[in-house]
């Protein structure tokens, strides 16, 4: 009986398969009015306003034109975030200098109240990374939800003020479309490295 209920529930709960729909061309033209339309799945469709570690106003779209490694962090994180930095450094170390120069590493704070531009600058210094290529961004609570939603990162504040969050590194292509998603601290880096090489190779 219970099994039966479960089966029915699972059937109910399965999200609709993504079938290619007959897209309405006319409606699409509306958003394609600007110079070069963004792909529909581009994260640069997000119009969230950010401030970077230098206190400058930024939008994700400002990174258009180059591959981006995108993740989320919070500065007071005791364990997961240092690991995230270490992992991103390893990825960067695996690239040729030319490729490295083309890739931006963008980290969005899950904790905008504490991750001020000053705190983010300190974090960049602490980790000894190149502030030109490593961009730390903060936004408001709604913006955090948006970024986490498009990256598929679940997070929550826990009693005591800390946060639990999934550690996911996402590689975006030059147009902001997700190319590769690396979930978890143990996921092998090779696939991502290969894609980075491909995306940074001169055409």
């Amino acid at each position: 009986m219970r099994k039966h209920i479960l089966a029915v529930l699972l059937a109910l709960a399965t999200p609709s398969a993504a079938e290619p729909p007959p897209r309405a061309r006319a409606a699409k033209a509306e958003s394609a009015g600007t110079a070069r339309a963004l792909p529909e799945l581009s994260l640069y469709q997000l119009k969230t306003d950010f401030t970077d570690q230098d206190g400058q106003a930024v939008r994700l779209e400002d990174f258009r034109g180059q591959p981006v490694l995108l993740s989320m962090f919070y500065g007071t994180c005791p364990l997961a975030c240092p690991l995230l930095f270490a992992r991103l450094k390893r990825i960067a170390a695996g690239m040729t200098p030319e490729a490295r120069a083309r890739v931006r590493i963008v980290l969005v704070s899950l904790d905008p109240a504490r991750d001020t531009p000053e705190a983010m600058t300190r974090l960049v210094r602490t980790h000894g990374v190149d502030p030109e290529r490593w961009r730390l961004l903060r936004t408001d609570e709604a913006g955090v939800r948006d970024v986490a939603a498009v990256l598929g990162i679940r997070y929550r504040t826990v009693p005591g003020g800390g946060m639990n969050h999934e550690s996911v590194i996402t590689l975006l292509d030059a147009e902001g479309v997700i190319d590769t998603r690396l979930a978890g601290p143990d996921a092998p880096l090779e696939g991502l490295q290969e894609r980075l090489t491909a995306l940074t190779s001169p055409r």
């Binding site: 509306e30 994260l43 469709q45 997000l46």
Partner: peptide
């Protein structure tokens, strides 16, 4: 937010 105008990033084909 009309069907056909929403980028796939914000709503799937359904």
């Amino acid at each position: 937010w009309r069907r056909g105008a929403v980028p796939r990033l914000f709503a799937d084909a359904g």
